[in-house]
Simulated scan of single mutants.
Amino acid sequence: MIITESLPSIVYAIADVHGRADLLEAMLGYIAADSNDHHSKPVVIFLGDLVDRGPHSPKVLDQVYSTLDLYPGSRLILGNHDFYLRELLRGALTYEDAVNWMDWGGVATLSAYSTWPVPAFENIAADIRRVFPHHVDLLENALSFKEIGRFCFVHAGIRPGVQLANQSEYDLRWIRAGFLDHIDVHDHVVLHGHTITKSLRPEVYSNRIALDTGAYRTGRLSAAVIRRDELSHFVCTELTESGAIRVGEWRPSN
């Protein structure tokens, strides 16, 4: 007898939080309320880049860790920024990666974790491992991609024409050219972040759904809502001019 895994009734995909714990808190509140309304627990897939640039990366990892515990089947996809933090905690961060990481927002993360000055990487890593061992576990258990029904969840994208099992870790975390300009269908509809959309809103294409709306600088965090293996709508949490956070649903025009 062949047993097939049933699809979750609802999936949320959240991209590129980048230290914006305030926006993520509002998003998770929306998800919790929706879960109560429908009397079912969702699956939440974080598409990576939890850290850097924004001010509260440690809190974001706490929020994600708690969410994965609360909603069975939920997972973190490792982003390129998360990769740098994981390598630091492994003691495997190369000099080149360290330079790039600090240039691309890593200073904000390390300053939020530890009072040691950058680049006292060994001391900072020791502080994180001691105070936040669950963050180490979270990063070590992160995936490179996740398939659910007709959707594939990744951080950056995929190399067209290459089976998922044969995709390189680098492409899954970094690809832009060759993926963003590819117009033919893939085996799955690809949900991804990594590249901020031109409209600063989620964008739907024939073969992919782009979710990075630049939360760290736009004040807008976005999630895609998948119901019964179909895109239902998007949820955006936005910082208003008054400093309040607005939560709204948004449906793209056909």
Rank of each mutant, 00 (worst) to 15 (best):
K146C: 09
G91H: 03
N100G: 15
A125Y: 09
L139K: 03
L143E: 04
S111I: 01
A142L: 08
V118H: 15
N100A: 15
D137A: 10
L139C: 10
G105I: 03
F145C: 05
G106V: 14
G79A: 15
A126I: 04
A125N: 13
A98C: 07
N123Q: 13
R90D: 14
S111C: 14
P72W: 01
G91I: 08
E147G: 03
A92C: 13
S66F: 00
R75D: 01
A126T: 03
W104N: 15
S74C: 03
V64H: 02
R75N: 02
E87W: 07
L78E: 04
F145M: 03
S114L: 06
T109V: 06
V131N: 10
N80L: 13
N141Q: 08
S74L: 00
Y95S: 14
H81N: 14
G73F: 00
L85H: 06
L93E: 04
E87D: 11
L93A: 07
D137H: 08
S144C: 06
H134K: 06
A98W: 06
L85R: 11
R75Q: 03
S114P: 10
A125M: 07
L89T: 05
E147K: 04
V131G: 05
E140Y: 02
R129G: 00
A126Q: 04
L85W: 13
Q63S: 00
N80G: 10
E122K: 15
R90L: 14
T115E: 14
P117K: 11
F145R: 02
P119D: 10
Y71V: 04
V136N: 12
L61Q: 10
L110S: 13
S74G: 04
N123H: 11
W101I: 12
G106L: 15
G73D: 00
L110T: 04
A98F: 15
N141F: 01
S111M: 15
E140R: 10
G106K: 15
P119I: 05
D137L: 09
V99I: 13
K146Q: 11
T109I: 07
V131P: 05
D127L: 11
L78H: 01
R90P: 09
W116N: 12
Y71C: 03
M102A: 14
F132D: 07
